[in-house]
Simulated assay, not measured.
Amino acid sequence: MAKTSELGFAPEHDQPVRYMERTRSYYLGLGYDNPYVWAHYLAVPFTPLKKPLNQSVLGLITTAVPYDAEKGPQGQGAPYNAAAKFYQPYKSAINQKLDLRIAHVGIDRKNANMEEVNCWFPLAPARRVVEMGRLRMVSPNFYGLPTNRSQTHTLEIDAPIILEMLRADNVDVAILIPNCPVCHQSQSLLARYLEEAGISTVVMGAAKDIVEYCGVPRFLFSDFPLGNAAARPNDTASQDYNFELALKLLESAPAPRTTVQSPLKWSTDAEWKLDYANLERLSKAEIARLSEEAEKARVTARELRMNSLGS
Rank of each mutant, 00 (worst) to 15 (best):
S5M: 04
G8S: 03
F9N: 07
F9Y: 08
A10P: 02
D14E: 08
D14G: 03
P16C: 01
R18Q: 13
T23V: 10
Y26G: 01
L28T: 15
G29W: 03
L30V: 00
N34F: 09
P35D: 00
P35W: 12
P35A: 08
W38M: 07
Y41W: 11
L42A: 09
A43D: 14
S56L: 08
I61C: 01
T63D: 02
A64S: 11
V65Y: 12
P66D: 08
D68Q: 15
D68I: 15
P73T: 10
Y80I: 10
N81Y: 10
N81M: 14
A83S: 11
A83K: 15
K85C: 06
K85F: 04
F86L: 09
Q88P: 00
Y90V: 13
S92W: 14
A93Q: 12
I94W: 07
I94F: 00
N95W: 06
K97V: 11
L98E: 09
L100W: 12
R101H: 10
I102Y: 05
A103Y: 07
V105R: 12
D108S: 00
R109C: 01
K110L: 06
A112G: 00
N113L: 02
N113I: 08
E116C: 12
N118Q: 14
N118S: 06
C119W: 10
C119A: 04
E131Q: 15
R134G: 01
R136A: 10
R136E: 13
M137T: 15
S139W: 04
F142D: 06
N148A: 13
H153Y: 15
H153E: 13
T154H: 06
D158G: 06
I162P: 05
E164A: 13
R167I: 04
R167K: 15
D169L: 10
N170V: 02
V171S: 09
D172G: 04
V173P: 05
V173T: 02
I177F: 00
P178T: 01
P181A: 14
H184F: 01
Q187R: 10
S188W: 00
L194C: 09
E195S: 01
A197V: 01
T201C: 05
T201S: 00
V202Q: 05
M204L: 03
A207H: 06
D209N: 09
V211T: 08
Y213R: 14
G215I: 02
V216E: 06
V216W: 00
D223E: 11
P225I: 09
L226A: 04
N228L: 07
A230W: 07
A231E: 03
P233Q: 05
D235R: 10
S238Q: 08
Y241C: 07
N242P: 03
N242D: 03
F243T: 12
E244H: 08
A246V: 12
A246D: 10
L247F: 03
L250K: 14
E251R: 10
A255I: 10
A255E: 13
R257M: 09
K265E: 03
W266M: 11
T268V: 07
D269V: 14
W272G: 07
D275N: 14
Y276D: 04
S283Q: 04
K284P: 00
A288G: 05
A288R: 09
L290T: 12
E292H: 12
A294E: 02
E295D: 07
E295V: 09
E295T: 09
K296S: 05
L304N: 13
G310R: 12
S311M: 14
